[in-house]
Design a protein around this nucleic acid. Structure first.
Length: 259
DNA sequence: ATGGTGGCGCGGCCA
């Protein structure tokens, strides 16, 4: 059994106690973090090691920043999309326990038509080409993280209000579908799920209490890995805590022995 | 109510 999870923590500095609690409670084999907002020099390697996890990271002060926490060591580490020389630390690839793990913090895009939207779409193009190459080299692969895309209307609390908006626009959804067209499977949709299942809720307007969310955090599995997937769920418990991240962790379990 | 909250870091950006 291999458990792989993703969590946008919106500042690891603030959320470290919650992450340590969550590691203790859930004991994932692999946890991909986004928005650590820490330079590499400030990464809390020791506290995480004391919890039983090794760490690799691609850090950035104030914005972005990604990390992979794992029971077993990580190798073949990559921190950039090929062909995209980007100071923003949004990508971390590593091989752990025989699985190629690609941790992604897809650009938010801010607003449809903005410069950041164009950057997001260009980024997703580069991601597509990279995932195709990585999948060819690694039969057991997960591409997981904060995709900042709600793939379908059922992933949106109010589809009418969000139609054409950022995180839901047709071009973003088409880019996401192109990733699925590579053969990747959305682990969450391999199983029956509650209606109105989301992974992110705005801090404003009591959105979490009212379940006004979007499902934008995903665990995409290669075909061979998806065959072994036994469960995928959102863990809303951390979102209920005081001073939470605006995202909840997503967990997938695989009937696979670590190698 | 064209807002609201939170993180970073101390004004304004980003989400």
């Amino acid at each position: 059994m291999l458990t792989i999870a993703t969590w946008n923590v919106n500042s690891l500095n603030v959320r470290l106690p919650q992450v340590l609690d969550w590691l203790r409670d859930q004991q994932p084999d692999i946890l991909a973090l986004q928005e650590t907002k820490l330079s590499d020099a400030d990464f809390p390697t020791l506290a995480i090691a004391n919890a039983g996890y090794q760490t690799v990271f691609a850090g950035q002060k104030t914005y972005n920043g990604v990390a992979i926490l794992s029971r077993l060591p990580a190798s073949a580490i990559v921190t950039d999309l090929p062909g995209l020389h980007d100071p923003q630390r949004r990508v971390l690839g590593a091989t752990v326990a025989g699985v190629r793990v690609l941790n992604l913090y897809v650009p938010n895009g801010q607003a449809v038509g903005s410069d950041k939207y164009a950057y997001k779409l260009a980024w997703l193009e580069k991601l597509h080409d990279w995932l195709r190459a990585e999948q060819a080299a690694h039969p057991h692969l997960v591409a997981l993280g904060d995709f900042n895309i709600a793939p379908e209307d059922r992933d949106v609390h109010d589809p009418a209000a969000w139609t054409g908006q950022i995180l839901c626009s047709a071009r973003e959804r088409a880019a996401f579908q192109r990733l699925l067209d590579l053969g990747l499977r959305d682990s969450f949709r391999l199983f029956e799920q509650e209606e109105r299942s989301f992974s992110w809720w705005d801090y404003r307007a009591a959105a979490f209490r009212r379940n006004l969310g979007l499902r934008i955090d995903h665990i995409l599995a290669s075909p061979a890995l998806a065959e072994t997937c036994t469960a995928c769920m959102v863990d809303k418990a951390p979102r209920r805590r005081e001073r939470p991240s605006d995202h909840a962790p997503v967990i997938a379990r695989f009937n696979l022995d670590p190698t």
